[in-house]
Structures are given as C-alpha cells and as structure tokens.
Amino acid sequence: MEKLHLHYDVEGNDFIAAGEASGQVKRALRQLGIDFEVIRRCAICMYEGEINMVVHADGGTADVMVEKDKVTIILEDRGPGISDMELAMQEGYSTASQDVRELGFGAGMGLPNMKKYSDSLEINSEVGKGTKVTMVIHIPG
C-alpha cells in the first residue's frame, strides 16, 4: 500500500471538541508504528491547524496522507482568509477575539508552531474565500 488517506471534518466554534481530530491522527500514527518524535510533531501541527480552523474559520476539513517516508497534512477552510501573511507568521500575533483568548487560545503561536514542527509549510489563502494549509513531516528511514 502506497498511501493511507485519513479524512476528518472539523466543526467550527466547538472549543470542547477542538483537538479531537489531532487525537485521532495520533492514535492512527501510533498503530502504524511511526517514530514517536514524528507522531509528536504531526500531532502538534495538526492540533494548531485544527484550532485555527475552529477559532477563525468556522471549521473545515483535515486530510492526512501517510506514506512510507512522509506524512502530509492538508487543512482546508472557507474562512475569512489571511490578509497579512508576514504578520500572521509572527510569534504572538493573533486576530483572535477576546472571548477566544479567555478560553486560553489565541496566543499567536499557531502558525509559528506549525512552521517549527513541520518540514515544509505551504499556505494558500485568499481573503474572503478561505485558506489551505499543506504541511509535510518526513519520516526518517
């Protein structure tokens, strides 16, 4: 088998369920016997992306493709899009509302963490249309 495809729907504004998809990905990757450090990095990337979709975009979809040598995570939403990418990538910068911050989210570490823990991060975003985030994490041979 060359590629295993896992698909998850992420509900928007459901802060209690936030993190559920990343938890499921973690369990799946464990069953595949993937290196624990790779699993940890995937879980963090996936969790941050999932939270972003819950907080900013009223949910979206997550697709995880597992191959022998890499894990690809694609997160797609129809949210407001990112208007200033450079600013968004800065640590501590967040457009999250006060309500969301009171729940402990919106520390402005989401995208920086996704960049830090993935081997490649690609963001395609159009204001008013949505955002597509593609992350790749390599599995050492």
């Binding site: 088998m1 295993l4 069953q31 595949l32 016997g33 597992v66 022998k68």
Partner: peptide, 18 residues
C-alpha cells in the same frame, strides 16, 4: 514496549489500518 503497532513494516501496517 509499544503494544498498539499493527505491523513492523509500515506499508503492511497501512494496509491493515485501511
């Protein structure tokens, strides 16, 4: 002592997962 791994060969494990 991981007990949840489906197979030592990742490709076989992926097949089993599917």
């Amino acid at each position: 002592s991981p007990v949840n791994v489906l197979d030592d060969d990742i490709e076989v494990a992926m097949q089993k997962y599917a």
